[in-house]
Structure formats: structure tokens, C-alpha cells
Write a protein that binds this DNA or RNA. Structure first.
Length: 506
RNA sequence: GGCCCGUUCGUCUAGGGGUUAGGACGUUAGAUUUUCAUUCUAGAAACAGGGGUUCGAUUCCCCUACGGGCUACCA
């Protein structure tokens, strides 16, 4: 018997932006699938019509594409097991729910939300389960004739799983090892809602079975409901095909406590979503890593290292390296607090690692977004090469590269004016002459010209170097001054010295 | 409250019955760069507590504490 082809799925509900933790779940799914030459499926769990947000599905697709974690099967590209939207599979679930009822593993329940709320208030630690199900309105407590009557009258009802008494449900989790729950403490969860839609519990089991999922990755918050799923696999007669469970540790708030949430991003000043998310209902824009200037390579890399490591000192990984090295055994059990400082470090490393050619389109977009036209790509590439080591996020290229394209709008006058003298004006006038006559415009030669003039005039390098920098770039930043001048070219360099001289004199 | 999962520097983590408990981010100091950053060097910084088991426990077991998750006709 050969092992079945590895098939994994990411099954988000389209209710809003895609969270860091969600992307990491995708990533671990993807890495595992690709390592085993398996399939990665995207299934949209849109069974909650009240929380459904129309643009969310496309947004999720876009996020995955940006990250380079493209699904093999999805609502967008289809696949052998289509449809991949649970709302379009609605009819399938009822059949299985009814089968469970027929087998005695589930039952109809007619209680209204109000009635249940009242029960919860009345009885502390109320559970819809063995203790109370006899006192409620369901096909277990009601007479058969009455149930039939209610059903025929179309009275709204749900189907609940009948959790057995005094059993212990044990299962193996690839990260946590053996886990067990007592059924007496598990309640009779709703399987099929009154609107005919399945709940997550039924849908995930049915679809994982039908879609031949072999490994079920999900966040640790699902661990407590795992016994329901195990029971369902068993009652539906599919236990032999049950996937391996992989409950991933959670990503936690960096400061206080608890799961990282959208609110934390706004509160602490860092993104939580992969890409910008606009909520049309509240008119609220939530920042994304992409728009903040993260490279997808860095984003994927930093997410991989949140809860996993290769067992070596290597921290910078390409996607292919992650695929080659990933292993579930090396995923940690404990939740990880998200550290934005480290996240930025990953991005800086990736900017350094990637070639200027590779970075060019993104930098160009940053500059153009700031109204700086880039006409020559070859020039931009040279510029990127000289400044990329000083950039952490993509927008840093605006400050670090912008002045290669436009004359500084403002000068750091506070750094020059207090020490400015007429003799300095003379020095720079002489420098213009020397530069004008310079036979070569290479950085090294410009520096030599500069130093000759220093000797002639008796200035110290410290007196005039900073002013020259500010003339060319506007402030105290950027690469070596003569590298800048060399790239700027003779005409532009001289032009900027002239312009600055006027500004400094005023 | 109940149930489940977890616990090594501030953070992400390596390690594992006998180690100077390693790396990275951040931080501190210094070098380089007469800008800023990069880079380099050095430093501070951790096994939650209590019981066992053992010649020996941070590592194995138990308890406690703490943290987290779940406890919806949401996923």
C-alpha cells in the first residue's frame, strides 16, 4: 500500500483582512505540501452569511499571490474537487447530517436562540449535552410524532451531534503528541444551522474527506473542538481516511497578552494584515505589510521563523530553501510573541540580498508615488546598488535615492550656516572650476581633485566635506559624497553646488 | 468557573541527565565610515517555583504558579 498523495488545505472564512497568523498557516501548509510534492488547496469557508464580506475572497487570493504561495486548487482556478466555496456545496452537507441523525449520532433541535440564552443565564456552565438535552426541545426529548409534526410544519431547527457519554477521545497531533478529551465535557455542537448551512464542524470534516485532505493544519485555537471532528470522522465511517492533525501555535501580542489581533497593529504601530485592508462598512483602512514596504520574500521568511527553525543558525531562507528544510517536528509548541523590530531586520536583510535589478520595479513605484519620474532604468539600478544597504523598508528608498533624481528641496541649513564663511564660498567656487575642468568623472578622481584644492586653500576636510554633502543631497545622510557626485554627473553636480551656494549665502 | 495546550536571555529560539546553556533581534561599549546607515569587535542578559528519580537535573516524573486557547445556529 503506497501512501496517498499529500494534500493540504487552507480554509479561511472571507470576513476581512488576512492576518499574520493566517498567512503563516498558509505557509506551513504550502511548505509541507511542496516538500512532499503534494497539493495545496484553498477552500473558502463562507458558511456564515452574516459575517460574509464580498471582497475578502479576492483579497485572500491576492495576498497568497503576493507571497508566492499560490494554491493548486481554489475557487479561482478550480480543480478536481470543485466547487471550493462551501456556500456552493450547501446541499452536500445536509445529506451527511441526516445520515448522522438516521444513525443516532445526531438529532434535530428546535430550541430558539432566546430559549438557549435564557438557559445559559439560568444554569451556570450550561452545556447543550447529556445533562440538559433531555430538558430541551429536540428529537431526543420530544415524542416522534411531535418531531415529525414540527418538521413537516417547517419549524426552524438545527441538527446537533449527540456526544456519547463516558468516553475518552484520544488522537495524535503531529506537534502536540497525544491529546485526549473526556466526552462528558464536550457539548452537542450544532452541525447544520437553521438556514441549512453547515457549521465549521460539519463542513470541515465533510470537505476534508471529500477533498482527500491528508494533513489538516490549523491554529491551536481549534484544539478544543478536535474531539467533535474526530467523532464525526468516526461516525461517518471515514476514520481510516482521517487526516493527520497539525495544530499550530498561536502568534501572540508583543506586549500584553493574548492572540495578536487587528487592533494591536493600530495600537502598537505595525501591520497585522498581509496587505492593506479596507473595510467598506466602517470606512476603515488597516495597514498591510506589503504597503508598508515589506518584500514578500522577507515577509514569508519572518513568518516561517515564528515558531519554526531549521535547527541551525541560518535565519535567512528563500522559499525554496524553506520547502527543502521545513519539518513539522521542528515547529515549536508554545505561542510566539510577534516582534516588529525583528520583522524589519528580515526586510533589511532581504533588501541587501536581492539584486538591484530585482528591486528596481518596486523602488521605481515608490519614487513615482512621490512624484519623482524615473526615465532611465539603468541609472536607477546603479542608484539602488549604492543605497540599498541603508534601507530597511522600501519607502526608505525615497529618502536614500530621491535626491539622485531631483534637486534637494530643502537643505539642512542648521548644519552649515553657523560655520559658513566667505572663504568657504571661495572654496566651492574654485571647486566648480576644478570640477568643470576635470578630465575624469570617476569618484576616485573627484576625491583627488577635492583634496588638491584642500591643500591649496588650507581647509580641513571636516570644514567642507559636510557642506558638499548637503549641497548634493540636502542633509546628513547617503553614501560617500564622491560616489554621489559621480552618479549625478558633472553638470548636475556643478549645478547643485551653484544652487546651494545661493541658498547658503542668503 | 470548567476543559485543553504551553513555560530557556526583554523578544524569536538552539540544546539536553554532567555544557563556560549557543545563535539571532533589540540593547550597551568600541573600531571603521570626518554624514547617516552598513560592516566588524566586545559586553550585559535566560533554564518559573517546589518536591521527587538519580552519583548528578535546566533536561525525566509529580504538584503549584503563571501564560494562552476554547467554552455561539463565528470561524
Amino acid at each position: 500500500m503506497s501512501a496517498p498523495k499529500v494534500r493540504v488545505r487552507f480554509a479561511p472564512s472571507p470576513t476581512g483582512g488576512l492576518h499574520l497568523g493566517g498567512v503563516r498557516t498558509v505557509l506551513f501548509n504550502y511548505l509541507f505540501a511542496k516538500q512532499h510534492k503534494g497539493d495545496f488547496v484553498l477552500r473558502i469557508e463562507d458558511t456564515d452569511q452574516s459575517r460574509y464580506v464580498e471582497s475578502a475572497e479576492q483579497y485572500i487570493l491576492d495576498c497568497l499571490q503576493w507571497c508566492g504561495l499560490t494554491p493548486d486548487e481554489s475557487p479561482a482556478v478550480g480543480g478536481r474537487f470543485a466547487p471550493y466555496r462551501q456556500s456552493e456545496r450547501k446541499a452536500i452537507y445536509r445529506e451527511y447530517a441526516e445520515r448522522l441523525v438516521a444513525q443516532g449520532h445526531a438529532y434535530y433541535a428546535f430550541d430558539t436562540t432566546e430559549e438557549l440564552d435564557a438557559k445559559r443565564k439560568e444554569i451556570p456552565n450550561f452545556q447543550y449535552g447529556q445533562l440538559h438535552r433531555g430538558d430541551l426541545r429536540n428529537s431526543l426529548s420530544l415524542k416522534t410524532a411531535e418531531v415529525e409534526h414540527l418538521l413537516n410544519d417547517g419549524v426552524p431547527h438545527v441538527i446537533r451531534i449527540k456526544i456519547p457519554e463516558d468516553e475518552s477521545v484520544r488522537f495524535h497531533d503531529m506537534i502536540r503528541g497525544d491529546v485526549s478529551f473526556e466526552t462528558n465535557l464536550v457539548d452537542d455542537k450544532v452541525l447544520l444551522k437553521a438556514d441549512g448551512m453547515p457549521t465549521y464542524h460539519l463542513a470541515v470534516v465533510v470537505d476534508d474527506y471529500l477533498m482527500k485532505i491528508t494533513h489538516a493544519f490549523r491554529g491551536e485555537e481549534w484544539l478544543p473542538s478536535a474531539p467533535i471532528h474526530i467523532l464525526l470522522w468516526r461516525y461517518l465511517g471515514w476514520e481510516a481516511d482521517m487526516p493527520q492533525w497539525v495544530h499550530l501555535p498561536l502568534i501572540l501580542k508583543p506586549d500584553g497578552h493574548g492572540k495578536l489581533s487587528k487592533r494591536d497593529g493600530a495600537r502598537l504601530g505595525f501591520p497585522v494584515f498581509a496587505m492593506n485592508w479596507f473595510d467598506a462598512k466602517t470606512d476603515e483602512l488597516t495597514a498591510g505589510f506589503r504597503e508598508l514596504g515589506f518584500l514578500p520574500e522577507a515577509f514569508v521568511n519572518l513568518l516561517a521563523m515564528l515558531g519554526w527553525n531549521a535547527g541551525t543558525d541560518q535565519e535567512i531562507f528563500t522559499l525554496d530553501e524553506l520547502i527543502a528544510n521545513f519539518s513539522i517536528e521542528r515547529v515549536s509548541k508554545a505561542g510566539a510573541k510577534f516582534d516588529f523590530e525583528k520583522a524589519k531586520w528580515y526586510n533589511a536583510e532581504w533588501i541587501k540580498k536581492l539584486s538591484a535589478e530585482n528591486l528596481m520595479p518596486k523602488v521605481k513605484a515608490i519614487l513615482e508615488g512621490k512624484g519623482i519620474a524615473v526615465n532611465a532604468d539603468a541609472y536607477l539600478i546603479k542608484v539602488i546598488d549604492t543605497v540599498k544597504d541603508r534601507c530597511t523598508l522600501l519607502p526608505d528608498f525615497y529618502q536614500q535615492a530621491g535626491y539622485f533624481f531631483i534637486v534637494p528641496a530643502v537643505y539642512d541649513l542648521a548644519a552649515v550656516k553657523p560655520k559658513w564663511t566667505d572663504t568657504k564660498t571661495d572654496f566651492f567656487s574654485a571647486l566648480i572650476t576644478r570640477f568643470t575642468e576635470a578630465p575624469s568623472w570617476e569618484a576616485m578622481h573627484l576625491e583627488i581633485e577635492f583634496k588638491y584644492l584642500l591643500e591649496e586653500t588650507g581647509f580641513k576636510i571636516g570644514d567642507v566635506m559636510l557642506p558638499l554633502r548637503i549641497m548634493l543631497v540636502g542633509g546628513k545622510f547617503g553614501p560617500h559624497v564622491f560616489d554621489i557626485a559621480a552618479l549625478l554627473g558633472k553638470e548636475e553636480t556643478i549645478n547643485r553646488i551653484n544652487l546651494a551656494l545661493e541658498a547658503f549665502a542668503g
